[in-house]
Design a binder for these strands. Structure first.
Length: 751
DNA sequence: GAGCACTGC
């Protein structure tokens, strides 16, 4: 670990006149925090405290924190923010990462008068029964501020930080290992969080960090969000499907008569990076039909811009187009490595490079390490750390740690994990074909800017773009929002459930397009989630109770029917499939393949991948000794199968609660009993009820043609059925990468 | 014979 001065800068500390220091660490930097919020066992706590830091770090927490907050750019805006929200229900706030908006604004607001919980009278709903007079009832409205985040780690990390700042720290481990709810008795506190698999909401919580999906879920239960006085929508510029839907519903609430909240307004603060602010502001400033008024009929929307904390970054483009990216990458990395000092006054000068995918990263790593070995002894050594989603948590975490070896420069090779080279792979749903394509696509300008910004978080930095300035100019300004490029099946069903009949005309920031919606209607109708008039059915509402896509939800409902009676098995399969990329790791070397195969064979089922997943989950949960070793031998991704276990636990609990299961299933470990052929058939028939469009028949020329559209599909090499020629197959995933592939499949011959 | 990233009572 480096010494004093460097510690300061590597923790994003700046110096105030008078010798005080303050931390400006970005909330998403995956490094140990400063002493006041670091985990107990952090080595950072034991480090020598520099003179200038001593007085602050040894003073009580509150004071130290107070000094920090004052220096955050956001602090001087607190009165402006408070008064803006006293006169307006909607505030659009622009501020880059590091401005402190996500941690400070809730603290500015929770003691405002409008943020008190109050008792109000509302019209009672009679469970939809017609003909009964509606009475009044008294309910509580408000009191809590919700802050939404796109990702779970952001929500939980922010909650821990803010709870420490207000003096009611959340106890226990920071990162839940999936064991469910935060243990121990209910504590008291001002700050809590709620994300999937992990809820910590102390008694007296006023500030609650949640994922977007979680709030959407809460909204389906309580359309008026009566628990809340305000919703702060953070990172709205990322434009996830969930945040787009949430924005639509929030806007609708702001414009409504608020009868469901007894007239108490819901304050909405929308927080965004600089990209697309105008669009977002215009959206919230306009009426439901999109018109903007000047006569005051539409409540005013305040706009506030807050400068971020960003060191300057030099951006260097290549003078001409680069024919060979691999070569240019190596040359640039070694030019930096041999010419730039290993560290400057701001800290270590490490290198972060963005590449398209795992394959590029692995080959670049090999080449860099080979070349580095040939360098003179006077040149620092290099430590190359790959960073992509399929790596284990530990390996990903390592990429964020300072390298321990002396005289060594860290080089991180990342995909979009660390933010979105000139291209990235983007999933794009093609409604006409009913399949997703995963193709390399140029990044947007805003991605390029965000990447460059990564070099200026702790000190001035440099960004070498391996493309020309003209190339940059030719990039799109922003990426297409997710809702315009993914399957809208879930979004349509959610909208139907909230009573939106005319999905096409519902004013989202980007409205849904006709063709994808029509496809979704047809499919949802086949899944019996919508009736023939495209109104939501009881089954459709039930499907929304499960955190899986509509086709899987359909499979769950069918599996619970007495005629099939295979719900537990279906849960196991769905848990494995939806837990991540794939629980089976791809085997690159022949040796690994042979070694794993001997073990994996006992998991394989000739019926296909679905039964193979079932066997895997059953054997895994029957394993009583060393589950990690069990996974390692079979090259099963430990992280993903643990996630699968979480999903399984959650789905089982939901099935008990919603009466799909009569009683809680027996605890693990249970002895392994292979599914009988009859059981296997029942399981596959259930899946067919959710995936009736995803079948294909073998043709005389030995290619598969889909039954729905006569498209050619090939069995993906990851399937246990790869290389076999079955007469008929069903597949759960259809993607276009190198070609049109069917994944996660089953042989459907014979019934 | 293949591989972008998140997320949900």
């Amino acid at each position: 670990m480096a010494k004093k001065r460097k510690n300061e800068s590597s923790e994003n500390v700046i110096r105030l006149p008078g010798g005080k220091t303050i931390s400006l660490e970005g909330y998403l930097t995956k490094k140990p925090r400063d002493a006041s919020t670091a985990p107990e066992n952090s080595s950072f706590q034991k480090k020598p405290v520099s003179d200038s830091k001593k007085d602050a770090s040894q003073a009580p927490d509150v004071i130290a924190q107070d000094q920090k907050n004052k220096a955050l750019p956001i602090w001087e805006y607190q009165d402006v923010i408070r008064s803006a929200l006293r006169k307006s229900d909607v505030l659009v706030l622009v501020g880059e990462t590091g401005s402190g908006k996500s941690t400070q604004i809730p603290q500015f607001l929770y003691q405002e008068d409008w943020c008190r919980r109050r008792k109000v009278k509302v019209m009672k709903r009679n469970g939809g029964k017609a003909g009964q007079p509606d009475g009044e009832e008294e309910v509580d409205v408000g009191g809590v501020i919700a802050i939404t985040q796109p990702r779970r780690v952001a929500a939980t990390t922010l909650a821990h930080r803010v709870s420490a700042e207000v003096g009611t720290p959340l106890k226990g481990q920071q990162y839940n290992d999936g064991k469910g709810k935060g243990g121990g008795p209910v504590q008291k506190g001002l700050v809590g969080y709620s994300v999937r698999f992990d809820h910590r909401v102390p008694k007296g919580t006023r500030i609650k960090y949640v994922t977007e999906g979680m709030l959407l879920q809460e909204m389906l239960r309580d359309p008026h969000l009566r628990e809340y006085s305000a919703v702060l929508v953070d990172e709205i510029h990322e434009r996830s499907v969930d945040v787009d839907l949430l924005s639509g519903f929030l806007k609708q609430m702001v414009l409504s008569d608020k009868a469901g909240r007894g007239g108490v307004p819901l304050k909405v603060v929308v927080m965004s990076a600089t990209v697309n602010v105008e669009k977002i502001k215009t959206y919230f400033s306009s009426a439901a039909d999109g018109t903007v008024s000047s006569d005051g009929s539409i409540p005013p929307v305040e706009l506030l811009e807050i400068e971020g904390r960003q060191f300057p970054v030099d951006i260097i483009h290549t003078p001409q187009w680069v024919p060979d990216i691999q070569e240019a990458l190596l040359k640039t990395i070694f030019k930096i490595h041999t010419e730039q000092p290993l560290q400057d006054k701001h800290g270590k000068q490490d290198i972060l490079a963005f590449l398209i995918g795992q394959e590029e990263i692995e080959s670049a790593q090999r080449l860099i390490e080979e070349h580095a070995a040939t360098l003179d002894k006077t040149v620092p050594k290099v430590k190359v750390l790959p960073l992509f989603g399929q790596l284990s948590m530990e390996a990903q975490h390592e990429a964020f740690q300072p390298v321990k070896a002396p005289f060594t420069r860290k080089i991180v090779l990342a995909t979009n994990v660390a933010e979105t080279s000139v291209t990235s792979k983007v999933k794009h749903f093609r409604p006409r074909l009913g399949m997703a394509s995963l193709l390399a696509k140029p990044i947007s300008k805003s991605s390029a800017i965000q990447r460059a910004g990564r070099a200026g978080r702790e000190g001035p930095g440099k960004c070498f773009r391996l493309y020309t300035e003209e190339g940059y100019d030719g990039l799109e300004q922003t990426e297409l929002p997710e809702i315009l490029r993914t399957d809208v099946l879930g979004a349509v069903l959610t909208m139907k459930a909230t009573g939106i009949d005319d999905v096409i005309d519902f004013p989202l920031m980007d409205r849904l397009q006709l063709e994808p919606v029509e496809k979704a209607y047809t499919y949802l109708n086949m899944l019996k989630a919508l009736d023939d008039e495209f109104h939501i059915t009881e089954a459709g509402r039930k499907m929304l109770l499960f955190p899986v896509t509509a086709p899987y939800a359909r499979v769950l409902l069918v599996a619970a029917e007495p005629a099939y009676n295979c719900l537990l098995e279906v849960i196991d399969i769905i848990a494995c499939i939806t837990s991540g990329e794939d629980i089976f790791q791809q085997l690159r070397s022949e040796e690994a393949q042979e070694a794993a195969e001997a073990y994996r064979k006992e998991l394989w089922r000739r019926e296909g991948d679905l039964l193979t997943y079932l066997t895997t989950m059953q054997r895994y949960t029957a394993e009583n000794a060393d589950r990690i070793a069990w996974c390692k031998a079979r090259h099963i991704n430990v992280r993903n199968i643990k996630q699968a276990l979480n999903i399984r636990r959650q789905l089982r609990a939901l099935c008990v609660r919603h009466k799909l299961l009569k009683e809680a299933p027996p605890q693990d470990p249970q002895p392994f009993v292979p599914a009988s052929p009859e059981k296997a058939e029942a399981i596959l028939k259930c899946f067919l009820r959710g995936f009736m469009l995803k079948t294909a028949l073998l043709h005389p020329d030995l290619s598969y043609l889909t039954s729905a559209g006569n498209q050619v599909v090939a069995i993906h090499p990851s399937s246990v059925l790869h290389g076999q020629k079955k007469e008929a197959i069903m597949f759960l995933e259809h993607v276009y990468t190198m070609k049109s592939y069917a994944k996660k499949m089953a042989n459907t011959i014979g019934w």
